[in-house]
Design a protein around this nucleic acid. Structure first.
Length: 244
DNA sequence: ATCTTGATGCGTCACACGTC
DNA sequence: GACGTGTGACGCATCAAGAT
């Protein structure tokens, strides 16, 4: 939920930090899974390479890419993706829905393409009435109803004050006040967290692939080893003088 | 039915490393 | 040196299987 974006992130409990620092003192870097696997693959034929970049997998839900090319993609605090396409169409996808629900497209009839210096979106928040709100260009608020099998979305005028936890950000060129700078810092942090989240997912995927690869290699080597032992035994039988 | 435990996945932080 | 990326470590949540 949105509550995860709180100061608890910044002020981590100090004892835990010290402990983890001790742990990390012995941290020694190892090559990335991609590199290890690729080296492995060049040594051993049959070991698949990890591709440099997978266009869809591990990141955004693939169904987003099947739609009109969005200008911006955002992830909400509940894991949904919001894509804002050219012309102001809002596409909302639920990554956990196993592709059944897919994208839902909302076209904002009263908003054209965002001006170049427009305030960009940000985030989603849980409003007091249990709805989810997405803030999008054009000073609009997209509100998702809280319940029901078919989620409903409405476009509303924003309330006078932003709900708690909502982050709005301006393009860097328009920053003036300390408050705007703080907002920019928050936006950057959110962006970094989002990227890191994706990177972690990708990293885990590669790790699993790497482990699978090692396991299959073990299996192959075991078979090879067995064959060699058998061969050795056969040769021993042939070469050794008959003792009877 | 409830509790325990191990496995798994996720988000985040810290840090090493590569690139510019 | 600043910055972005990849990954180990950690804490937490969830789930399934077994024990009580």
């Amino acid at each position: 939920m949105v509550a995860t974006i709180t100061e608890t992130d910044e002020s981590a409990d100090s004892e835990g930090v010290i402990d983890s620092h001790k742990h990390r003192e012995v941290l020694s870097r190892r090559p990335s899974y991609r590199r290890i696997l690729n080296e492995l693959s060049s040594d051993v034929p049959g070991v698949p390479k990890i591709e440099e970049e997978k266009s869809e997998e591990g990141g955004r839900p693939s169904n987003i890419t099947t739609m009109a090319v969005p200008t911006s993609i955002y992830q909400t605090s509940t894991g949904q993706y919001i894509a804002i396409a050219q012309g102001g169409a809002i596409q909302i996808s639920n990554p956990g829905s196993e592709g059944v629900q897919g994208l839902q497209a909302l076209t904002m009839t009263n908003s054209g393409a965002p001006p170049p210096s427009a305030t960009i979106v940000q985030y989603a928040a849980q409003a007091a009435d249990g709805t989810q709100q997405f803030f999008v260009p054009g000073s609009q608020v997209v509100v998702q109803a809280a319940t029901g099998d078919m989620p409903a979305y409405q476009i509303r005028a924003p309330a006078t004050a932003l709900p708690q936890g909502v982050v709005m950000a301006a393009s860097p060129g328009t920053l003036h006040s300390p408050q705007q700078l703080a907002e920019e810092a928050t936006r950057k942090r959110e962006l970094r967290l989002m990227k890191n989240r994706e990177a972690a997912k990708e990293c885990r995927r590669r790790k699993k692939e790497y482990v699978k690869c090692l396991e299959s290699r073990v299996a192959v080597l075991e078979v090879q080893n067995k064959k060699l032992i058998e061969e050795l035994e056969t040769l021993k039988d042939i070469c050794s003088p008959k003792a009877d």
